[in-house]
């Protein structure tokens, strides 16, 4: 275990709440507003951690355990994801399966906590969440299988670096397709437009936001922080594909951080220029992402 393999984890822990801030600022810019401070999520977390809590009489220990299990899962997942040229803390062949599994575990308990309230709103959100993520899962794994085939390696820490390190020249179309697929997965998994609108806080069209309607206080802080981490980790996958290693650690770090914020800006731009899809259209988008990834795989067969 090399000292620099702590860097991705530490950066994720410290900087992940910054990404939603960047997204919100980008959206504000497009709308001609000043927008909330970049550090708004940090302020929110600080405030939430100092609050008490109100629990519904319907709920059980599942509702209280859900946010803890979710955050523990995504924190463990953060140990598996490299950042650019910096390897992850834990790397092994097919580590992305554990990564996907941990995100699945997080979702499983968020959904159960939502169902625990007995509220039909949260049931509705839970129903959509499990359905859309079931369709996003094949896209993610097929995309990773394509990368694994091109890189000849099965660990996130090595395969992303190798892809970024030179395959773009002769495999441009393949990698571009994979990247689009991963980007769609990122938008869907983090409940962003065009799949979900994080701003419609009490409308019936929501997925993630509505599921956590009844949480408050430290529990909600865990959820908000977990969501920010999840966005960071999936962004790190996309950025890892693109940013090559230069050899100079300082420059590497600057490039990678630039890439992360660029992804946040792209998400912000997407949210500014398009509306949310009708719910019936979302499956088509996700199946489309899977199809793109599969096409990339076939294109790369040679």
């Amino acid at each position: 275990m090399k000292p620099e393999s702590f860097i991705p984890l530490l950066l994720a822990l410290m900087l992940s709440p910054l990404l939603p801030g960047v997204i919100n600022r980008t959206k504000a810019l497009f709308a001609g507003r000043r927008g909330p401070p970049l550090l708004q999520i940090y302020f929110d977390l600080w405030k939430l951690l100092h609050k008490g809590a109100v629990y519904s009489r319907t709920t059980t220990w599942i509702f209280r355990a859900g946010p803890m299990l979710g955050l523990a899962a995504v924190l463990t997942a953060a140990m598996l994801v490299p950042l650019g040229n910096f390897p992850a803390l834990i790397a092994f062949p097919a580590d992305f399966l554990l990564f996907a599994g941990l995100l699945g575990l997080m979702r499983f308990f968020t959904v159960l906590a939502a169902l625990d309230t007995g509220s039909s709103f949260e049931g509705m959100g839970a129903s959509r969440e499990v359905f859309f993520s079931a369709l996003a899962e094949p896209a993610l794994l097929v995309a990773l299988a394509t990368l694994a085939r091109q890189a000849g390696s099965y660990s996130l820490s090595t395969l992303l670096g190798q892809v970024a390190g030179g395959h773009w020249l002769h495999l441009g179309p393949v990698l571009a397709l994979v990247m689009i697929a991963l980007m769609i997965v990122l938008l869907a998994e983090n409940a962003r437009i065009p799949v979900d609108d994080p701003n419609t806080h009490l409308e019936l069209t929501m997925i993630h936001e509505v599921m956590v309607l009844d949480h408050g206080g430290p529990d909600f802080a865990f959820i908000v922080y977990g969501a920010a981490l999840k966005l960071w980790l999936l962004a790190a996958l996309v950025v890892g594909m693109v940013v090559p290693a230069t050899g100079a650690p300082g420059l590497d770090l600057a490039l990678v951080m630039g890439g992360m914020f660029a992804v946040a800006v792209v998400v912000g731009v997407v949210e500014s220029v398009m509306a949310r899809l009708r719910l019936a259209m979302v499956p088509q988008l996700l199946v489309g992402a899977g199809a793109l990834a599969a096409a990339a795989f076939l294109l790369g067969l040679k």
Binding site: G104, V111, L115, V130, A134, E137, A294
Partner: peptide, 24 residues
């Protein structure tokens, strides 16, 4: 692709089964 879909749908099915039977 298929096994990933199966896993996702199985999670959907068992959040349903556990959630509707034991929660709420």
């Amino acid at each position: 692709a298929g096994l990933a879909l199966i896993g996702g749908l199985a999670a959907a099915c068992f959040t349903k089964a556990f959630g509707v039977v034991f929660l709420g």
